[in-house]
Design a protein around this nucleic acid. Structure first.
Lengths: 353, 353
DNA sequence: CCCGGGCACTAGAGCGGTTTAGTACACGCA
DNA sequence: TGCGTGTACTAAACCGCTCTAGTGCCCGGG
């Protein structure tokens, strides 16, 4: 005999299938004595529900989907996703919900997967990341009628609930910090310009430029890759009037930028301050360690998971949720412009050529 | 009306459910004309199979499981997993098989998930990573009778097929390279000693020590984390007779080690050569870029996926598969001991204080 | 002319659960 | 005594698909 079914349990316990179902799901319809007997038998036979059978009865599939549309190599290194994933798992596993993960090349493929998984009843809901400025996925998901939670915002996510952090506030905190140190030429190596949070960061920098008396406040869009981060840094540092501080939208780019600065003999933080918009081990292990915006990505994942589970249980009841604005963790990569950093004398000597 | 079922299609096309099923699955029993008519109707109604209904009829669930038992923070940064994941996806998506991913704290939890998912018919097979020296998971999976492919080996994976690379050969190639450069004191910052590949690497280093005339060839076990990597490096470099080369079992540790060397004023590669056992963007973006063993992790993932799909289709037919031994990519972090590297004069100046 | 065999298709049983309708019995109450 | 009500349970429908057994028909051979 293969795996036991409720029919087997029913026979063994001398009751009907229905009674077993009631007992196992803790719903009324059986006496306490019978329930315990059934549970005992089920335990003995080592019974587990067949997820497909459950799902067939119109019930949940017990899984949620996360589809990421980024070229594989980019993800490879983003600690952000891994952290987020762990948090999601933590939030989901509390309710024994599994996560179906898929990495696709582009948004078209992503949407196709949404359609497929939804119509195959493979998942009960979706987590949407990398919210775009004009995001077609939102409409598709709304039309599919599948519960979904958007990571990003605020705004532009239609009727779907979102979990978001204030990127604007975060960028302002960085710029204020740099301005307070005396920086007047600040560059921003932004991420993909199609991303909503990229736009918010760019705008925040531009808006603060005048009020803080910045001479220069440019945002350079990239694809988040280390190579574009390095190339853009090289271009910025080759200018006659180069920026005294660069804000990177990801830690990978920041590290790549640090590498370029080192290679070009520009001392950090002596002549160039570097801030990363994302914190991770990466920012800590390089030398000098990078000043970075820290947020609890793991907790963020948990939040998103909770929101999604709620959205699945009671659609329409979930409201947007703002997470704490990331705080700046000051390390060794920032200092007053033109001044050697805390360990300046040593690092100054890099600047040979 | 909700989503269409084959009954709807049958009604619309004026045939029976059975005929529709035959037509949609491309099996004999319907004429070519009828088949086309049915397919057309299905297309029009935008029909998709209900995965649960399919799975219920004893068929496949259309998903495979990957459970990773490592503390969340460690994964966060391993580009290896992300690359592997992408490769797996690529291999699986060709057959429209989904990947269920779960990160758990320890092996006990991992085994529990295997049991649960198998008995719930949630997945058709498993991918096992981080093969241990004495690995209880193997026996559990064999007993469960679920198809599974082990990433690692050779040996110690029971009757489960494995995909493996020759870690021994790889380590030997590193040591030979370093010995040829003139290194006689080589340290190895190993990973978790419970991992099978860690043991193979340790043994390979030890075995080659005599034949190559090494004075020192120690392996220091760690937990793969940046902090242990940094701490161990600090200890090694603080010794009176410090090693002239360190081999790191992961790129994260290698980068952390490079940071420590920089901080301690030990020029790389002038007085310390660094080799990473894993290549990734990480190894390239730091400065100096790290000499590392490169392998195509993406392709590895694809291979594993293919093997697993075969194992699911025809259990018992799958044999072990050896993947190409990773090749050493020489970058800037290695050189002759005591000699400045290619850009040595500049870097030499780091070594102040 | 009848029969066997192959083809195209139908009917319906199952897969393993959930859920609803129905039944048997005990009990309280007029 | 009869009736309504509540409880504990059973029987069976149902979810959407697959697959087997069976049916009707046509064709060729004896």
């Amino acid at each position: 005999m293969g795996r036991p079914t409720i029919a087997d349990i029913a026979r063994q316990a001398g009751v009907s299938k229905g009674a077993v179902s009631f007992a196992l799901n803790g719903r009324p319809g059986v006496s306490e004595a019978t329930r315990e007997r059934i549970l005992l038998v089920a335990e003995e036979m080592n019974w587990r529900p067949h997820s497909a059978a459950r799902a067939l009865g119109g019930a949940r599939s017990g899984a949620v989907g996360l589809v990421i549309a980024r070229p594989a190599r980019t993800i490879g290194v983003e600690p952000f996703f891994a952290q987020l994933l762990s948090g999601l798992q933590a939030g989901l596993s509390a309710r024994a919900v599994a996560l179906q993960l898929l990495v696709v090349e582009d948004t078209a493929a992503e949407i196709e997967v949404y359609r497929r998984w939804a119509s195959e009843h493979r998942v009960d809901g979706f987590i949407v990341v990398d919210l775009k400025v004009r995001d077609e996925r939102v409409e598709v998901l709304e039309r599919l009628g599948v519960p979904a939670v958007v990571l990003g915002g605020p705004g532009r996510h239609g009727t779907l609930p979102s979990v978001w952090a204030d990127d604007r506030e975060a960028m302002l905190s960085i710029v204020h910090y740099l301005a307070a140190l005396g920086h007047r030429r600040i560059a921003h190596l932004a991420g993909l310009p199609s991303f909503r949070h990229t736009q918010r960061r760019i705008r925040a920098l531009r808006d603060s430029a005048r009020s803080l008396g910045l001479i220069e406040a440019v945002s350079v869009p990239t694809d988040f890759s280390d190579s574009e981060g390095a190339a853009a840094t090289r271009r910025l540092l080759a200018q006659p009037q180069r920026p005294t501080a660069i804000v990177y939208d990801s830690d990978v780019m920041a590290v790549a930028g640090l590498g370029v600065a080192t290679e070009m003999g520009v001392p950090v933080p002596g002549e160039l301050s570097i801030v990363s918009f994302d914190d991770s081990v990466l920012a800590r292990i390089v030398h000098p360690a990078l000043t970075a915006l820290s947020r609890d990505t793991f907790a963020l994942g948990e939040q998103v998971a909770r929101q999604l589970l709620t959205a699945i249980d009671a659609p329409g009841t979930v409201r947007d949720l703002q997470t704490p604005t990331p705080l700046l963790t000051v390390r060794e990569s920032t200092g007053r412009p033109g001044e050697p950093g805390p360990s300046g004398p040593r690092r100054r000597s890099w600047q040979t050529t």
